[in-house]
Structures are given as C-alpha cells and as structure tokens.
C-alpha cells in the first residue's frame, strides 16, 4: 500500500485527474475557475523559484504579471500583431524588463530587496493606471484575441482552452523541475541557505541571483499572457499589490520552496474562495491569519507537513533505511 503512494504514482494520478476533469464536471464555470487556477499556478511557480529556492522575496511579481499581460494586449490590440507572434514576444519583453530591474534590485538584500520590489511593483501599477494614452488607464484594454488555432486544432471552446493552459502548465512544471535539479538550481539553493558560503565556494552570486530573478519574471510574463488571452480584458488592477499578496498566499499555504507547493496552495485557496463566495470581499479575514499561522507553525506549508508526515511513516515502517531525507 505504501508503495502505491510513491511520488510517480501521485504525479500520474494528478495528471490523469486534470485530463478527465472537463468530462467529470461538464460545467463551464468550474472549467473557467480551473483554467484560471492553472494560470495562477504558473505565476506562483515563478515566485517560488525566486523566493522559495533562492531566498529573495520579490513583491513586484504582480507587476511583471501585468507587464506580460499588457505587452500581449498592446501588441495584439494596438500594434496589430498576430496571436502567435505576440504570444512569443510578450514574455520576452517581460523578461527584458525583468533583466533591467533585476540588475538594480539585486544590489539590495533581504528587507531592502522586499521593500525595493514592493515599490517597483507599485510604480508599475501607477504607470499602467496613469498612462492613459498607452494602456487605456482605468478603462483597461478590451478586445484581446482568444488563442487562434494550431493547424487543425481550434482553441476557441472552453475545453480546448483548458487543455491549452494545462499543457503549458505541465511544460512550466517540467522546466522548473529540471532547473531545480540542475547545477543552477543547486546553486540557487546554496544562495538561499547562505549567500556568504556560496560566494566563498566560488559561486557568482550576482549572476545566479539575476538568472533566478529573470526566470521568475519570465514565468510571471507567461502567466500574464495566458491571463490576457483567456479573460480577454485587462485592467490596471491585475498589477495591484493585492495580486502579489494573493500569489504569496498560494505559495506560503502550499509550501514555499517545494515542488508541489504552488499546485496544492493554489488549488486549495481557489476552491476555498469559490465555496466562500459570500465572503468574497472579506476572504482575507480568513486567509490573512491563515498565512500568519502557516508561517509560524508550518513554515514549509501543506507540502512540508505532508513530507514530514510521510518521512515519519517511512521511518516507522523501515527503521533502518536512510533514504528518509530524500523524501523531503
């Protein structure tokens, strides 16, 4: 029984569940919620790479999400680009902005970095909100095209869009997994654990922190683009601090610095919010304290709790094996 719940089976099980989900519900609204949750997950994975694995909490993440969405929206609506060229170009634009901001932001550390990025995020929001000539200000951008078809595949139905976003999410998770388990990923973790130690081991912390930052903005950009073409309307609110705090909540509740954390946290909070619709404006009344409690009692979130529990169980079952640590 214990062997049945190994890592691979859980992953395969989740993928299968996600694949058959549209056939279980047959409800367009649930499909919509789920697709949106997938988009948030991509953004949370980006945040997790930087905050969870490299140890730098960026509070400008919603800003980069908004840059991705607006880059895509402006390219298609105002510059007349086709869907696919804009789809490829928008994350690149976001990444370029991320590179420039990262160059400066990463000169600061810890609290300074958090405060600096908080201010950068706010500036991005203010610029989007006030620059009416370009972004349309509070009125936002409308008429953003939905995904166009890939050869014979049309992406206009909700089910098709669900699978489209799902496939990109899988790709993102795969890429993140490979990054974390590569030398670069190990380097990020080394920087998180001790920047001085990493530096004295001969790791170029400046370069690696920048790579991590740029990658995280890239994923935020992808999520923003998907959001723009899925919702097809964007307003300055998507760059607001509240979105950053939402993403942060997903990450902390799910488990900061874990592979499964962004999925667990996003799914849990999104579906809880759905069931607490009557609380919509006041949901932070529950999630705010939840965030604080999580940080105090389980710093690595639900995934961390689960890893701890399964490690304990394995230890009980096979007292002499030493592979317990690897589970975490």
């Amino acid at each position: 029984m214990a062997a049945f719940f190994n890592k691979r089976n859980i992953v395969v099980g989740f993928i299968l569940l996600a694949v058959i989900f549209p056939f279980i519900t047959r409800n367009d609204y649930f499909l919509h919620v789920m697709t949106l949750a997938f988009i948030w997950m991509i953004a949370v994975y980006g945040l997790n790479l930087l905050a969870g694995y490299t140890g730098y909490l960026s509070l400008a993440h919603a800003g980069f999400f908004a840059i991705g969405a607006y880059a895509f929206g402006l390219l298609t609506v105002k510059a007349g680009f086709g869907f696919w060229p804009a789809f490829l170009l928008a994350p690149i634009i976001t990444t370029a902005m991320g590179f420039l901001i990262g160059l400066i932001a990463l000169r600061t550390k810890e609290h300074f970095f958090a405060i600096y990025t908080l201010c950068v995020g706010y500036i991005i929001y203010l610029v989007i909100d006030k620059w009416e000539g370009l972004t349309g200000g509070v009125r936002g951008l409308i008429g953003i095209p939905a995904p166009s078809s890939i050869g014979p595949l049309t992406l206009s139905t909700p089910i098709a869009q669900y699978y489209f976003v799902f496939v990109i999410l899988l790709l993102v998770i795969f890429v993140i997994y490979r990054i974390i388990h590569s030398l670069t990923g190990r380097t990020f973790i080394a920087i998180r654990n001790s920047e001085e130690l990493a530096l004295s081991l001969g790791i170029s912390t400046t370069k690696n922190k920048l790579i991590s930052f740029v990658l995280s903005t890239f994923f935020a950009g992808i999520a923003g683009v998907l959001y723009a073409c899925f919702i097809r309307f964007i307003g300055p609110d998507i760059g607001n601090l509240n979105i950053t705090f939402d993403l942060l909540t997903y990450m902390i509740v799910g488990g900061i610095g874990t592979m499964s954390g962004p999925i667990v946290g996003t799914l849990l909070i999104v579906w809880l919010s759905q069931n607490l619709q009557f609380l919509q404006d006041y949901r932070m009344l529950i999630f705010g304290p939840l965030l604080t409690l999580m940080v105090i009692f389980s710093p690595r979130g639900i995934s961390g709790l689960f890893a701890l529990w399964s490690a304990k169980r394995t230890r009980k079952l096979k007292p002499k094996t030493s592979n317990v640590e690897e589970q975490a």
Partner: peptide, 21 residues
C-alpha cells in the same frame, strides 16, 4: 528565531487581516 522571509510574510498576513476586518 525564523528566517527574514517568514517575518515579512507574517506581517503581510496581519496587514491583509486587519484591512479585511
């Protein structure tokens, strides 16, 4: 005794709570 990120997140949690409240 926790890491700086935890302090910041805990403070943000309280901020969100008080605002909602």
């Amino acid at each position: 005794d926790s890491t700086p990120i935890q302090h910041k997140v805990a403070a943000i949690g309280m901020l969100l709570f008080l605002e909602s409240f």
